[in-house]
Nucleic acid binder design. Structure first.
Lengths: 145, 145
DNA sequence: TGTTTTTGGTCAGTTATATTGACATATCTA
DNA sequence: TAGATATGTCAATATAACTGACCAAAAACA
């Protein structure tokens, strides 16, 4: 291993710690909004991914969330009951269910985003494009390691 | 708001999603090690912070973890029972308890770090110093927003 | 065609991590 | 000494996850 300053153990420990803080803060910002709908962070993550990938299947969502289908099912049941999302038979493969946001889900998704956006926007607004690209690039590497 | 490409909503949503993935993957790496000791992620986070700030007080740890003292107490009880950490009366203020790693706790901390280090190290090893500095800088801004 | 596999749903029980609220004790500070 | 602070603890509850078992519908395959 090369003896680079930024690869020293303490530096790596800093990153491990900061990733935790960044996650915790980013995902606690929309708590009030979620509470208004009686939803939690599990619903939030599902809503986020459905909004970003409209029409995704249950197994698509499962593999993004990496939770069991029993866990996801509770969440989806809540969301459907609340008319935030709808499940429709898959067009190609009718065993599958494709998931879509209803009006209420779109509204919730927007409200959540307004809260979360602030933190990220403010962190990035004074950074140059190069910094942001590099940030994203390293984040991707961490995920795909 | 300036109309910068990297501040477009979809880009910000990407970041929100990636922060989640980065956290999840980073903190699931040492699961096996933790299971060996019958500990979970809550114990992991406590051990991490105690290792980084030996002798910190219960309230120091509480404010870093942002959980209730009842939640932390379960974790500390487990760690003390397992001889991973020790609490000692505060030297200046004896109402306080200062937390230290025992031998077993140090060993566990190292085993955890070996697992977590790989991901971060590999993500950073081919990046130049400038990228790493910029990454850390934006992460800090996100946390302190 | 009939069999096997895949996709999704569900029941039941359990675990891990956190919460709220109340109350107790020791110690510090004014 | 009175009040504030740091910590610990009891009890009940919430949330998000898990394992394991089983079922039905639809697709894929032989």
């Amino acid at each position: 291993m090369r003896d680079l300053l930024y690869l020293k153990d303490d530096q790596i420990k800093d990153f491990i710690e900061q990733i935790f803080y960044a996650y915790r803060e980013t995902y606690s910002d929309p708590k009030k909004v979620l509470k208004k709908y009686s939803f939690g962070i599990a619903h939030h993550k599902a809503i986020h991914l459905i909004e970003r990938h409209e029409g995704l299947t249950v197994s698509d969502l499962l593999s993004k969330l990496k939770i069991t289908k029993q866990s996801l099912n509770r969440v989806l049941r809540d969301l459907v009951k609340n008319k935030a999302v709808s499940l429709k038979k898959g067009e190609i493969d009718s065993r599958q269910r494709q998931i879509f946001l209803d009006e209420k889900g779109k509204k919730l998704s927007e409200e959540i985003f307004i809260e979360q956006k602030k933190r990220i926007y403010n962190a990035l607004k004074n950074s140059d494009a190069d910094s942001v690209i590099k940030f994203k690039n390293i984040l991707s590497k961490i995920i795909n390691e």
